[in-house]
Design a protein around this nucleic acid. Structure first.
Lengths: 329, 329
DNA sequence: ATGTTATATAGATATTTATCTATATGGGGG
DNA sequence: CCCCCATATAGATAAATATCTATATAACAT
C-alpha cells in the first residue's frame, strides 16, 4: 500500500461511501458529483492496491480489505476529531500552560487572581516567577515568560501594557512613634529618621527615590533590607520608617501606622505586560480574559483600576506567526 | 483545523522533524532537501492553524499543540502500518475467507486437503458447498464461489482449470455375486442386472451414461438413489450393481467387490475450476498454493495427478481489477 | 567581528488532485 | 427486449502539491 498519496479527505469520502452504500448517495451527502466520488474511490483503491468494494444487488459492500480500511479510517478520522477538540480547548484557554513573572510587591495580590483562575481552569498549568524589578526586566529582555507584572513598564517598544490595580506607596511608622498621631506630616520631617529601603533594582525603591528627587529632597540615614516583609517587620520593631506599597500591609496592622505625609501616597499602577513580538499563548490570553472579567470579585474595590479590556482589544489585532515561534534560552 | 489538505505524507515528515529535532536532519533522513521539509512544515502549520514548533538553543521542540499533533500522527501512522500488515496477511492468503463448491463425490476426498490447510492457516475461513453437478453448475454460473471442483469442467470460456486427482469409476457388486469371482467380465453381462444409479444431473451418472453410449450399450433395469452412500449400501445389501467413484468405497470394504469389467475403470479427473472473469480471493489462491504443495501428503499416491502448478502459473498472469469486483447475488 | 550552520524565502516546474460536464456501460425490473 | 438507475470513463481545467536550486536570514561558536 502506498501511503504517500493518502489524504484524510480521501478517507472521508471512502467512509461516506461505505456508510451510504452507494456512490451517488455519498456524492450527494458530500456535495460532490457522482463521477468525482467514483474517481476518488478509484484512486484510493490504487493507493491500497486491493479491491475495496464489491457490488451486490445494487449496493456496495466492502471486501475484507475494504472493511479493515473502513475501520482504520474511522479510527484515524476520529483521532483527528479529538485533536481538533484539543485545539479548541487550547485556543479557548481551557488548557495549556503559561508563565508569569511578578515584581516582588505584586506577589501580595496576584494570588487573588491566580487562585480563582486555576479553579476555573484546572487544566491550565501556571508557572510564577518572582523577583525584583531588575530581575524581572532581565526575564523580559530574554522573553522568558508569557506575562509580566510591573508598576512601570519597560521601553514598550516591544510590549503592550494594561493597568489593572492601584499600587499606592505610603509612609509607615511604628505605633507609638512621635509622628504617628499627627494630623499632617511633611516628608522633610521624616528624612532625619532612619529609612528602611529595599535594594537598588527594586521598583518600590526606584519610585520612592524618583519622587524624592522631584520634591528636591535627599535621603538621610538608611538601612537596606532584602524584602518587603523584612522591612514591614523592621518598622514594627522600631528599626526605622519606610515607604511601602500599601498591599504589603496586612488588613489588620496594629503595630504599624500609615503617616499622613503631604504628597503621599505615591500613586502607581500595576499592569500586565505582554511582549508584542512574541505570540501570546492561548492559556495566558485566557488568564488575561479571566482577569479582565473577574478582577472586581478578587480584589478590594479601593484598589480597582481595570483597563485590561483595552489591552485585550489591542492584542486581538496582533498578527500571528502560525508555524513556529521563537524563545530565547 | 482544516483536515482537507492533510496528507499522511505530511504527518510522516512532521514526525521525522519532531523525532530528529531539526529540519535539516529530518530532510536527510527522508532523502529530501531542507527547503522542501521547511515548506511542508509551513503547510502543515497552516492546515492546523497553530504554531507547532518552537526553536530553543538550535533545536526544534513541539509546542503544546505540536506535541498533541505528534501523538496523533504517531497513532494514525501506526494504525495504517497495522492496516498494511493486515493487507500483507490477506495477500499471503494467511487470513481472509473463501468458498468452494464441490460435486458430491469429491466430498470424500476434499476434507483431506481442507483439514491440513485450515490447520496451517487458522485465520482463513472456508465455506464448503456440496451438491450434484447440476447444482454446482448453477453456482458456477452465478459466480457464487471462489473455487469449484468438477470432474468435467463447464464451458471453460470464463474459467481456468487444473487437475489434481484421478477419479476412476468402477463397477461394483456385492460379495458373493456370481460375477464377483470371475477373472474378466464384460459390461454387457451386467446390463441384465438391476443397476443402481444417481439422479440425472449427477456427474457420475453423466459419465457412466456417455461411456455406455460410446460402447453402444443400453441400460437395463435401474433404480435411482439420491446419494453415493445410499448406492454403496444398496449394493452391499444386494439391491443391484453400480458404477461408482472408487473414492466412495472405504479403504476396507469386505461386503463389496470391484468387478474387473473390460474397459473400466472409466478414467476421469477432478479439477479445481476458477472463474477467470472474477478476481480470485487471496485466501482461495492461498488454498490452491497449499494444495499444489501438499497434495502428495494428503491423498493416496495411486490417485495423485497434480497439475495445479500450471493452473497457478496461468492465474498469475491474469489482470486485476483493483477497485471493485462484481459478484452476482 | 566572522565564518559556520540551520532555517526560511523565492522562483521554477512537473505532477497530481479535485472537480466539473458529458457520455458510455452494465444490471435489474417490467 | 427495452428502459431506468447507478457506476465508470473521457476530457477538460484550475488549483495544489512536491520538489528542486539558489539565496537570504538568523543564531551560534569562535
Amino acid at each position: 500500500m502506498n501511503i504517500r498519496h493518502l489524504t484524510f479527505r480521501l478517507l472521508q469520502v471512502y467512509v461516506a461511501v461505505v456508510a451510504s452504500g452507494t456512490v451517488s448517495e455519498a456524492a450527494r451527502r458530500l456535495h460532490l458529483t457522482q463521477p468525482t466520488v467514483s474517481m476518488q474511490l478509484k484512486r484510493l483503491g490504487e493507493a491500497v492496491g486491493e479491491p475495496l468494494l464489491e457490488s451486490r444487488q445494487g449496493r456496495l459492500y466492502p471486501t475484507e480489505a475494504g472493511s479493515e480500511l473502513y475501520r482504520a479510517s474511522r479510527e484515524v478520522l476520529g483521532r483527528f476529531d479529538d485533536f481538533d477538540d484539543y485545539l479548541s480547548a487550547l485556543r479557548g484557554g481551557e488548557r495549556g500552560r503559561f508563565s508569569i513573572a511578578l515584581v516582588n510587591t505584586a506577589q501580595y495580590v496576584l494570588p487573588r487572581l491566580l487562585g480563582p483562575h486555576s479553579r476555573a481552569f484546572p487544566e491550565v498549568e501556571v508557572t510564577v516567577h518572582i523577583g525584583n524589578r531588575r530581575q524581572m526586566l532581565t526575564r523580559f529582555e530574554r522573553q522568558e515568560d508569557d506575562l509580566y507584572v510591573f508598576s512601570h513598564p519597560p521601553s514598550l517598544a516591544h510590549a503592550r501594557a494594561g493597568r489593572f490595580l492601584r499600587n499606592p506607596l505610603v509612609a509607615v511608622a511604628p505605633r507609638g512613634h512621635p509622628l504617628a498621631t499627627r494630623e499632617q506630616v511633611d516628608m522633610s520631617e521624616l528624612l532625619g529618621e532612619r529609612m528602611l529601603l529595599r535594594e537598588p533594582g527594586s521598583a518600590t525603591r526606584m519610585l520612592f527615590e524618583s519622587w524624592l528627587q522631584e520634591q528636591g529632597l535627599t535621603l538621610g540615614p538608611t538601612l537596606q533590607m532584602a524584602s518587603n516583609e523584612a522591612i514591614r517587620i523592621g518598622v514594627a520593631a522600631g528599626m526605622g520608617l519606610a515607604v511601602l506599597s500599601e498591599h504589603v500591609l496586612p488588613p489588620e496592622h496594629p503595630d504599624i501606622v500609615i503617616l499622613p505625609v503631604a504628597g503621599l501616597p505615591i500613586e502607581s499602577h500595576w499592569q500586565f505586560i505582554v511582549r508584542s513580538d512574541r505570540r501570546l499563548s492561548h492559556a495566558a490570553l485566557g488568564f488575561l480574559r479571566f482577569a479582565a472579567g473577574h478582577l472586581d470579585e478578587c480584589v478590594e474595590p479601593r484598589f480597582l483600576s481595570n483597563e485590561l479590556q483595552g489591552l485585550l482589544d489591542r492584542l486581538e489585532e496582533a498578527p500571528r506567526n502560525l508555524t513556529t515561534r521563537r524563545t530565547e534560552p
